[in-house]
Design a protein around this nucleic acid. Structure first.
Lengths: 155, 155
DNA sequence: TCACAATAGTTGCGAACGCAACTAAATTAG
DNA sequence: CTAATTTAGTTGCGTTCGCAACTATTGTGA
């Protein structure tokens, strides 16, 4: 590829190092975290996220559209993800009494137990793969950096 | 979720901030970069990675297994990804003369032109979404942090 | 009030990709 | 040299999820 193009602002060494270290790492990290959760709890990160969000919601239930927005899923993607959780008994669907268009996803006691079992294992995994590799200073730098990136994305 | 469990080492405030800022950002960032590339060049990040790797390879060709390892794809995943690139004319398959088990993925002139067109646009996107949001110091901190994480993962 | 628009969710279809099973070729053991 | 093993790649099948089309319900403007 030509590096003589006068208009293109190619990445310099520092920029390239940052980009490569980031992009090469996140795939492996997500894969490791997913594998840990699947092996220890037989669940996916996606399902875990659903259970966490429901457990933190009022009455342990949420509108589908709120859940979809929170998880960056399309309506159809969320419908399918919930299908799996309903089938295994972690979640039930309920029609809202206030707006009969909305389906509420409700965390069942069984789903809550599953989350209570999974959470410590998942936290241990996050620690092992991510937190333990960083100093407190690095965590603070990283928080600032990603907050800045995130703000840029939502413009 | 109970926070009174004595055995679980829950994340403290700094740790949680780092983890949340990271995990909430990477999905949006990848989505934005993918969208940019799709809109400007009608291609996916995955296809772009293939073209980059081939363009950097000797004679612009690589063994499928080497490519799969580099891209963290299974053999079947790579076969399908190449199918698309072959169909659009960016890549051809060639049987190796040294080992007739191996298929070589070969970058075509058309594929190379596509990459030459896409690269400046992709770099601009990476700059806009990622590099420009960080100071030089932040980039160096980030490189150190992710290198450390990556080393941990490969143990 | 009554048509029209906006919102919530589901379904059919298709794309991407992993797993397991398979073929073919090369390597190794006896 | 033959048989067993290993390696490279493809294919069938299943899973996940996005897009577009659809239904049902609610909100809105004349």
């Amino acid at each position: 590829m030509s590096r003589t193009d006068e208009k293109t602002n190619w990445l310099n060494k520092t920029e390239m190092a940052a980009w490569i270290s980031f992009i090469e790492t996140i795939g492996d990290l997500q894969y490791s975290l997913d594998s840990d959760l699947r092996e220890s709890c037989d669940m996916t990160s996606g399902d875990y996220q659903v259970l966490v969000y429901l457990s933190e919601s009022l009455d342990r239930r949420t509108r589908m559209c709120d859940l979809a927005a929170r998880l960056n899923l399309t309506p159809s993607g969320l419908t399918r993800r919930l299908d799996g959780l309903v089938k295994e008994g972690s979640v039930t669907r309920e029609v809202s009494t206030k707006d009969r268009r909305v389906q509420l996803a409700v965390l069942t006691p069984q789903g809550h137990r599953k989350l209570v079992t999974a959470a410590p294992l998942h936290v241990a995994s996050v620690r092992h793969r991510f937190i333990d590799r960083l100093t407190t200073e690095q965590m603070k730098h990283l928080t600032a950096a990603f907050t800045s990136i995130r703000e840029g994305l939502s413009e």
